[in-house]
Computed example of a mutant assay.
Amino acid sequence: MSEISNAIATRDQGPAAQIEAYRDEYAALVPSHINVDQWVRLAAGAIRGNEDLMEAARNDIGVFLRELKTAARLGLEPGTEQFYLTARKSKAHGYALIIKGIVGYQGIVELIYRAGAVSSVIVEAVRANDTFSYVPGRDDRPIHEIDWFGGDRGPLVGVYAYAVMKDGAVSKVVVMNHKRVMEIKARSDSKNSQYSPWNTDEESMWLKSAIRQLAKWVPTSAEYKSEQLRAHAEAIGELASVASAPLPPQPSVLDDVDPDDEGPIEGELVD
């Protein structure tokens, strides 16, 4: 076999080629509105452009392909702020790098919109020089004023999230201060890793901390939405009032793949 043929054979066994090999399996998992060709290109491009991710994918291709399955089931774009692909040192792999997928805040926002119950989702970080006011029971939503042209907004001090439902009602408002976000960060096994979004994209992880809590109070899938609306209607005995009544806390499609208040578990990836 020529050197060129050998190079092609080696390349064809690589992670990007494996993604293509499992294309039909991913196509069966992604929601119908997802363009499978584009999804596969995103997944392959994410590792081709990052040496650490390519090394991690090669170290355990099975773990990598399994993480992509999670992104496919959720209908999120791998290698983006919807679904981060991160290289993680794994004790179970002799501290070699492996890939771990992390649902990002934009991915959770996408799931909420896709469920069809909300007209808008607001999730914003608050910085020291912003003006912020919110009194539960008095205000239906926070008042957040930013001087966009005043220079440095200062360090992050908090984050909030809420949704406006299709009928105009405002969901539960989630407000988190610095201490609360740091408690969530402390639970992440990846917090000290140079590859973690906590260190590469800190503000996005603050936003995720808030939107992940909001996901308890608004539907994240059409299936859960219909089930919860029906159960809620039966509980209050008035179907017509379901639209204007706030939904109770509910299951989320994120519960299995992105446990609430838990960071990625280093080296212990469970199907």
Results as ranks from 00 to 15, higher is better:
G137K: 02
E124D: 03
L247I: 00
V63H: 07
E202N: 06
T70C: 03
Y22I: 12
A27L: 09
P264T: 04
S241H: 10
P259I: 14
M1K: 12
E227Y: 09
N6G: 07
P15I: 00
P249F: 14
K216Q: 04
E203W: 10
E223D: 02
S188I: 12
D24A: 12
A169I: 10
R187E: 03
S209V: 08
I8G: 02
V30N: 03
D261N: 10
L156Y: 08
A125W: 05
W148G: 08
I98K: 05
G137M: 06
G75A: 07
V135T: 07
L53C: 05
P142Q: 11
G154P: 07
T131M: 06
Y26D: 04
L85G: 06
S120R: 13
D260W: 12
E202W: 03
D60K: 14
E238C: 10
I146F: 04
M176I: 09
D37V: 11
A125P: 03
G137R: 15
V164S: 04
G107D: 01
M182K: 04
A46S: 06
V253L: 08
Q18Y: 04
R58H: 08
P31T: 04
L207H: 10
E234P: 08
E124N: 05
G116S: 01
V159S: 07
V40F: 02
A92M: 10
D139V: 13
E266F: 15
L247Y: 06
S209Q: 06
L214G: 08
R66G: 12
L207N: 00
S244H: 03
T10G: 01
W217V: 11
H178L: 08
E262G: 10
D130Y: 06
E145V: 13
S252N: 06
A125Q: 10
P155N: 10
A17N: 01
A72E: 03
S196W: 01
Y162N: 09
F64E: 00
S120M: 06
G237A: 03
A72I: 15
L65I: 12
G154V: 01
G154Y: 00
M1Q: 05
A57G: 05
G14K: 00
Y105V: 01
M165W: 08
P246R: 02
Y26L: 09
E20D: 03
S32I: 12
E124S: 14
A240V: 11
V36W: 09
H144E: 09
P251F: 15
W198F: 15
I98D: 01
D52Y: 15
D152L: 01
G107M: 04
S209M: 14
